Every structure is written in structure tokens, then in C-alpha cells.
Amino acid sequence: MFYYLIRKLLFLMDPEKSHIFTLKCLNSKHMQIFINLFLKPIPSIPVKCMGLVFPNKVGLAAGMDKNGEYINFFNKLGFGFIELGTVTPLPQVGNLKPRIFRIPSKEAIINKMGFNNLGIENLICNIKKSKFKGIIGVNIGKNTQTPIENSINDYLICIEKIYCYTDYIAINISSPNTKNLRNLQYGILFNNLLENIKTKQKEMHQKYSKYVPIAIKISPDLSKNEIIDISNQLIKFKIDAVIATNTTLDHSKIYKMQENRITGGLSGFPLQSKSNTVISILYKQLKKKVPIIGVGGINSLNAAKEKIQLGAELIQIYSGLVYHGPKFIRHLIKKL
């Protein structure tokens, strides 16, 4: 009840300003002392996936902490893993503001951020300073100014730089807010991307005697045949996991609302069924050869359980945290 009262005030602010203000307040030293008093540690319920042991099944999706500035706070919430980013080789400001829009009646968010971040070097510094004892993943993307035909180089740069500082790497080729990015999910571009990142992974593994798993984050707007093609490639190149899914450009679930005129990726409850459909198809095609991380529209314990029943080994939360607060995360962890 306390969170919902606070949320009413926060929702009076611009969403992006509210996001930054809230995280900065919660990350302050005084608030950390308060959190330590009232948020007791949650017992670990280990889950093995990608060759890693996760303290529990519930993770923070990419986008909430792009620059790794709030790792210690999210650690206190009990997340078994935190995915930072999306981060790019060079800093970039992203798309024009306003670029985040709430739809409270649908428990949804539309964003058109455009990979705004402070660059991978800054993220590495923040990871080094953190005390998080769970699993850290880093979600990487290409810089906006990099032509799509040269985009593989951006991913390889990020892999090389972040390899020693993360537990897994997520390749973001499915954001709808960077021009032509989703083209990397298809045909020769997809094949070349997977081939190059697996070669780089092998090179780094040999160099550092450390194997860092690589996951591919895909779109919810793919057709069944496209998902089948992607599944075959994931198996062929022995990709370590697939994250299903990113945000959707399908606004049909909010078509009668004023917000339907806003462009950008839709997340939250309206994404739930599309994400579940993708997970279901992936599970049938992958036959447990590639683990699935389910994300998209998890707003209740039943929604979380459904993702797992459909084949997800781990789940990630974003909009659910915005609409239901820290207690929701702890509830999921305990009940799952």
C-alpha cells in the first residue's frame, strides 16, 4: 500500500525524470541504511542456466539501469541477476525527449529511448565499484551512427571490453528504437553476426581462461517461420541462451487509446501474450538445446509461472517493478 501511495506522486512527474529521481533517492547512503533495516536478505534458491548458478530465477531486465549506477540497490531487492545496459561502444544521447510514456490503465510503458548511455568504459568502472554478489549480465548494442553493415564491429568491441567484468553478455538486435537494428535478426546479417560473436567468444575464452555465455535478445514481432529460422541458427552456432522478448511495435492492445499515436516499443501487460507465444515456439524448436529467458508483461505471480511453464528457465522484470514496486519482486522470488 505504501508503494502505491508513493507511485501516485511519482506518476505526476515526467516518466524519465521520475525514473532518475527515484533511483538516485533509493541509492543514497541514508536510504541504503533504511533499506538494510527493513529488507532482509532472501534465502538463495539456486538455478543453473548457461553454465552459471543463479541465486534465484528472477532477474532485472535491461533498460532499468543502463549505466550500472544502481547495482547495489537492485542487489538489495533480491534479484538473482541484473542485466545492465543497453550499452554501446561510445556514449550517445539517444532519441529526442519526451521518450518514455506510461499507460497506467494497461500497466504498460512505451519507450523510444534509442540506446542512450554513457558508453561501455563508464559501465565497466561502475561494475568494478559494485558489491553485487549475484549474476551480472551486460546488454550490448550498436551506436546509432554505425551503419548496419558495419554493426558487427560495435558488438565485437563491446564483447572484448566487457568480457572480464560480466557473467554473461546479451546481444540486443531487437530494439525497435534504433534504425534498421532489427534487420540483424534475419538472413546473412544474422548468420554473420552469430559467426563473428562466437569466434570472438572463443578468442576471449582462450585468452582469459574464462567462458562468458552469450545470449541473443529477440523481437516479439517475428513470424513463426522467422522464429523457427532463428532457432535453427541458435542451435547451429551453439548460442548459450535466447532472451524472449524485447518491446513490441504492435500497439493493437491499446488501439482505442490516445497513446496509440505514440511511436516506440510497447512493454508491460499488453506485451505478455506476444512474448508467451514466442517462448512457446522457441521451446518447441530448441528442444532444450538453448535455454530461454522469458521477459515481457510479467505483472503477477501467475504471469511469471506461465512463462516458466511455457519453457523459460529464468525470467526478467521491468514494467512489473514500475507498477508494483520492490515487494512484487520479493514475492515472486519467494513463491517461485
Rank of each mutant, 00 (worst) to 15 (best):
Y3T: 00
Y4L: 14
R7H: 08
F11K: 08
H19S: 01
I20M: 02
T22H: 11
L23S: 05
K24D: 15
K24V: 00
C25R: 05
L26V: 01
L26A: 09
Q32A: 02
N36C: 05
L37G: 00
F38P: 03
L39W: 07
K40N: 14
K40S: 06
P41I: 01
P43A: 13
G63M: 01
M64D: 01
G78W: 13
F81H: 15
F81S: 14
T86L: 01
T88S: 01
Q92M: 04
N95T: 08
N95D: 03
K97Y: 09
P98G: 01
F101W: 15
I103M: 05
N111G: 05
F115Y: 15
L118C: 12
I120R: 12
L123H: 04
N126Y: 02
I127Y: 09
K128P: 14
S130P: 09
F132I: 03
G134I: 11
G134T: 11
G137M: 14
N139M: 05
N139H: 07
G141V: 10
I148C: 07
E149H: 13
S151Y: 07
D154Q: 12
L156W: 05
L156N: 02
I159N: 04
C164Y: 02
Y165V: 08
Y168T: 04
Y168C: 12
A170I: 09
I171A: 06
N172H: 01
I173R: 13
S175P: 13
N177W: 00
K179V: 08
K179W: 00
L181C: 12
L189M: 14
F190H: 12
N192A: 02
K202D: 04
M204K: 14
H205T: 15
Q206D: 09
K210V: 06
K210F: 10
Y211F: 15
Y211N: 12
P213V: 03
P220G: 06
P220M: 01
S223D: 03
K224H: 07
E226K: 13
D229C: 08
D229A: 15
S231A: 15
N232I: 03
A241D: 07
I243P: 11
I243T: 11
A244K: 08
T245R: 11
T247E: 03
T247F: 02
L249R: 05
D250V: 09
D250H: 06
H251A: 05
S252G: 08
R261E: 09
G264I: 05
L266R: 05
S267V: 02
G268S: 03
F269G: 01
L271V: 15
Q272P: 01
I279P: 11
I281S: 00
K288H: 13
K289V: 12
G294E: 04
G296M: 12
G297C: 14
G297K: 06
N302E: 12
A303R: 07
A304Y: 09
E306C: 08
E306F: 00
Q309K: 15
E313A: 09
L321S: 13
Y323W: 11
K335L: 03
